[in-house]
C-alpha cells in the first residue's frame, strides 16, 4: 500500500510509472523525440530520460507552440511522459496536455514534495484527484 496525497485534476486519466523530478521548468521542444532525453543546456534534467515517466516539475516555459509540438513528436516515438504533476499551471502547457491526452494534476500537498524522489513508483489518478506513492520500491536502474 502506498502513501496517498490529494491533488487537483487538470487533464483527465490515470497512469502508473516511475517519477522523474525536475526543479526547473520544462520546454518539451528541448527534449529529443527519438530518445526522450532532455537536451537543454544547464537544465536539472539535462541528459536525463523522461519517456513514460511520471514527470514532476514546476511548470512549462517557452513559446506558445513548443509544448504541443514537443509532446506530439515525443508521442510519435513512444517517448511521451505517462503523466505530469505540476505546481504552476499555465494555458500553453495545460491545453497541450489536454489535447495529447496526458493525465495531469496540480495542487499536491507540500508533504509530497518532501518525500518524492526520482525513481519512486507513482500512481496518478487525475479523475479521482489523488496520487499514490510507493517509495519503498527501489529504482530499477
Amino acid at each position: 500500500m502506498g502513501k496517498r496525497f490529494a491533488c487537483h485534476r487538470i487533464s483527465k486519466g490515470q497512469a502508473q510509472a516511475r517519477a522523474v523530478v525536475s526543479g526547473d521548468k520544462l520546454c518539451f521542444y528541448q527534449v529529443e523525440p527519438e530518445s526522450g532525453i532532455v537536451m537543454e543546456r544547464a537544465h536539472t534534467l539535462e541528459g536525463k530520460k523522461i519517456s513514460k515517466s511520471v514527470l514532476i516539475f514546476p511548470g512549462g516555459k517557452g513559446s506558445s507552440v513548443v509544448q504541443a509540438d514537443g509532446l506530439y513528436q515525443l508521442n510519435m516515438h513512444g517517448n511521451m511522459p505517462s503523466a505530469m504533476i505540476i505546481q504552476y499551471p499555465e494555458p500553453v502547457l495545460v491545453s497541450s496536455a489536454i489535447i495529447m491526452e496526458i493525465p495531469m494534476v496540480d495542487r499536491v500537498e507540500a508533504a509530497f514534495y518532501d518525500t518524492v524522489r526520482s525513481g519512486d513508483l507513482i500512481l496518478v489518478n487525475a479523475d479521482e484527484g489523488y496520487l499514490e506513492l510507493f517509495p519503498e520500491l527501489a529504482p530499477s536502474v
Partner: peptide, 11 residues
Amino acid sequence: SNREGANSALC
C-alpha cells in the same frame, strides 16, 4: 488575454 497556446487560441 490569457497566455493561450497556439491550439487553445485556435479553439
